[in-house]
Design a protein around this nucleic acid. Structure first.
Lengths: 335, 335
DNA sequence: CTGAAAGCGCTTACAG
DNA sequence: CTGAAAGCGCTTACAG
């Protein structure tokens, strides 16, 4: 391995000068700077980042902690963050928690030990004290998709309660009765808020809530939907709390020969790439994932660079994409 | 920040002893080990990984370089790698190259400077000399999905030529004539091999190849399919070279009111989560992405631990999933 | 089994 | 503008 000393020797200067020529924040005589550059290319020297980080007491790495990168919402978010990080010279350490507190804590501790400059976190548990430990260490944390309890952390999320309200209202307005809800995990903020939005609209219309308990994953959603079909044969519509569960619900409906939107109208929360490809094309509520991720990164950078002291929450809004799964377009065709 | 010296002071031992008590590879007297442990918990000490890495001249981080994590094939692979890495105590730095040599080189250089212990790489360019530079530095590289030219790198990939052959043969055997191919990038190994497999089968049957040039992305595939429909109104089947392009092709077919499998039968290479949800359900060739990723990680660990000297290539095989988009099931129903 | 010392490869006040 | 020196927080031969 070629070190800064080798470069210094070849260029006939001290290691200090080589260092200054590289970082470029201090004045270096132009001829000597050139000689250093030549020596660097001649030797193929690459500064050892670990040594630099130790000396500077900081890395150029951010931690990105999501529940599961296979969820298209988080895939897109991670991609957007990685893009922005690359442009600004930061590295991204990717962590999946599977919504477990254990993995979240383990990973946050690793990130602290790695001296990351900041963390974007989809919190599995808003009350995790490890988040506060990071903040105590002056490592900024931006919560994504959900909030954390420690109010020193910024947060970027969407109005999940409103999304469920819009979805439920849309089904009722389309003439559906006995509208059911396949919920995500109630112990996770997005899951709880989407459920509450649904319940609120149902109670507003004097209707009973019909909830199938899922956990944001395909398999349990399929089971929940099958059970609901047994218990409530009169279901006329269903709101599904996230994209992965839509797959499970569609499987259940096909298995039971229930037609969509004929027998049951369906609205999915989240907008996956395949929303308009499935049969029938899905009516969805999509959130601006990419913008949200970009904003989360910007907020983190503001903290890293010390530009901002006050905590900031930013709330984004879902958008309704009306397609075929709630029967709306059929109405349009009849005109 | 609490350092090893603070712990040593509180425990009444030297920093060396604290270090040995933590790493645990050298004998430490049980009572002193306990005192050290107590001091560690009392102070909430976490060893600084950067300092450790600098001293040990290696990190515990691997680099994972893919073309685009939004491609479901790579999403799944990255997730599998991250899981395995977590279990073995490694961190994952995620890098997307968008199939460009520039980003690949920039990232590989960053990973070298970060002193990663190994790299799993989906090469955008098999001839990139930066790969050899890594190998020169004794940083093992495992190529994933494709090979690299430097034969010191292990490689895990699937038999892409065979996949295209099976897909094309399946369409011809289903009675389709004028079978077209929507290709990926010909300058990328998987793209070239899939194209060659198609051409081989077509020429074997004395048929003319009908190729729409795509680049593995949705938009260009849509355009390519539209153009093909204009030029060859008699197309009876189409093989699509990857999952993202299937979306574009289906959009084009719908736009032109071409029915699947009535007018055109379709086989997609890759097995995305939505394969059985689209209408009609897609006949696909799926590769065992998760197994491949796990194997790639194992190969990397063998190199990192110095257990193996010889380069290894491992070839996995695609599996045909017959669904509705090539009309096969309709045949079955008629029995 | 334990401590003192050296050193990993940088950066950065401090002089000059 | 440049160099010598100190030091970031660890680990690890070397003694004892």
């Amino acid at each position: 391995m070629v070190t800064i000393k080798d470069v210094a020797l070849l260029a006939g200067v001290s290691a200090s000068t080589v260092s200054r020529a590289i970082t470029g924040d201090v004045q270096v005589n132009e001829p000597t700077r050139l000689r250093v550059q030549e020596a660097i290319s001649a030797l193929g020297y690459r500064p050892n980042r670990i040594a630099r980080n130790l000396r500077r007491q900081r890395s150029e790495t951010i931690g990105v902690v999501v529940s599961d990168i296979e969820n298209p919402h988080f895939t897109r978010a991670v991609r957007a963050i990685e893009d922005a990080a690359y442009r600004q010279g930061y590295r991204v350490i990717l962590c999946n928690t599977d919504e477990t507190l254990e993995k979240q804590q383990a990973y946050l501790e690793v990130l602290a030990a790695e001296q990351v400059v900041g963390v974007i976190l989809v919190p599995a548990d808003a009350a995790d004290p490890t988040v506060s430990e990071l903040l105590d260490m002056k490592i900024p944390v931006v919560a994504f998709d959900r909030r954390v309890d420690d109010d020193r952390a910024d947060a970027v999320f969407a109005d999940n309660r409103d999304a469920a309200k819009v979805a439920t209202t849309h089904l009722i307005a389309s003439g559906r009765r006995h509208v059911a809800f396949i919920s995500g995990r109630a112990n996770i903020q997005t899951g709880a808020e989407r459920l509450h939005g649904y319940e609120e609209v149902m109670s507003l219309h004097g209707m009973d809530a019909i909830v199938g308990v899922g956990d944001f994953r395909q398999d349990t959603a399929r089971l929940a939907m099958l059970r609901l079909l047994d218990q409530h044969p009169d279901i006329g519509g269903v709101v599904v709390a996230n994209n992965l569960m839509v797959i499970g619900v569609l499987e259940a409906l096909r298995f039971r020969d229930v037609t969509v939107p004929g027998d049951i109208a369906l609205v999915g929360i989240d907008e996956p790439a395949w929303a308009s490809l499935v049969q029938p094309a899905l009516t969805t509520l999509g959130q601006p994932t990419q913008q949200m991720a970009n904003r989360a990164f910007e907020l983190l950078i503001e903290r890293i660079s010390g530009k901002r002291e006050a905590t900031r929450f930013e709330v984004f809004h879902f958008q309704l994409h009306v397609r075929d799964s709630c029967g709306r377009r059929q109405f349009d065709l009849s005109h």
